[in-house]
Amino acid sequence: MIKIAMVEDDLELADVLTQYLKQYNIEVTNYEEPFLALSSLKFNKYDLIILDLTLPGMDGLDVCKLIVKDYNIPIIISSARSDITDKVTALQLGADDYLPKPYDPRELEVRIKTILRRFNSNHEDTNSTQEKVKLFNLDIEKREITKNGEYLKLTAAEYEVLSLMLKREGFIISREEIFDNADLLNSDFESSGSLAVIINRIRHKIEDNPKEPKYLHTIRGMGYKFTNE
């Protein structure tokens, strides 16, 4: 059974989600108070956390920061806050997904299982006899990206796009999601095709052969996918 800790002060929503997910063998324990949730993590093992941002006593972004600092557990942000800054900050802090309210519980169930498949796969790799070392590494505080330990010289726009790729490693990212999460990109970039130009510049800086990319792939009709191996 999948065990989830939910931090949600809307008790009616928490009950609806709890009952819905139960039919998919997902057990949810909800905490209305963020301090209770943080205390529970010290004594209970959960597979994933669903975290609201507007909480009594502590902002959800601060809760996210504390969880990422002390625990290796995936986090889905579930929030009615529509400010793009909140979404960007949550993902930069280490949240694995951001699901804006209102949403269909079926989407939450699918996202939970998708994230856990990826997380468990990565966890198995790190526990193997020979641990894989990531080729690319992102340092959010320094706003730096390295390849094989060497600093990549990136423009601000290139950094925004490539850092998003690294955070979404293994997932297909649509053009729309890139524009939603990259503050330096706007509709003018989209209409002029400059995103493709930025992607091409990034490939020239990270690929051995930009015409046959091994890391930053174009998925026709869907977007882009980054592999870090």
Rank of each mutant, 00 (worst) to 15 (best):
Q130V: 15
L48H: 09
T146M: 02
F119L: 01
P34V: 11
L116C: 03
N30Y: 12
N137M: 13
V68K: 15
N122S: 08
S39T: 10
N120Q: 11
L38S: 03
L48T: 02
D83L: 13
L116S: 03
D62E: 14
P105F: 02
P102D: 00
L116M: 04
P102S: 04
R118T: 05
D70T: 09
L61C: 09
Y71F: 15
F119P: 00
Y46R: 11
I112L: 05
I50K: 02
S78C: 15
P105T: 00
K42C: 01
N25S: 15
T146C: 09
L135Q: 11
Y71A: 13
R81S: 09
G94E: 11
K87M: 14
Y24T: 02
F43N: 14
T29L: 12
L135F: 06
L135E: 11
H123R: 13
D70V: 04
I76S: 08
S128R: 10
L48D: 03
D62L: 08
L135H: 03
E107Q: 00
L91N: 00
Y98C: 04
R143T: 14
D83C: 10
A80P: 08
L93F: 11
I50A: 10
D83H: 13
P102K: 05
D59L: 03
K87G: 02
H123G: 00
S40D: 14
P34M: 08
P56C: 00
L91I: 10
I67R: 10
D70H: 14
I84W: 03
R111M: 06
P102F: 00
M58H: 02
G94M: 07
G57S: 12
K132R: 09
E124R: 07
K87V: 08
S121E: 07
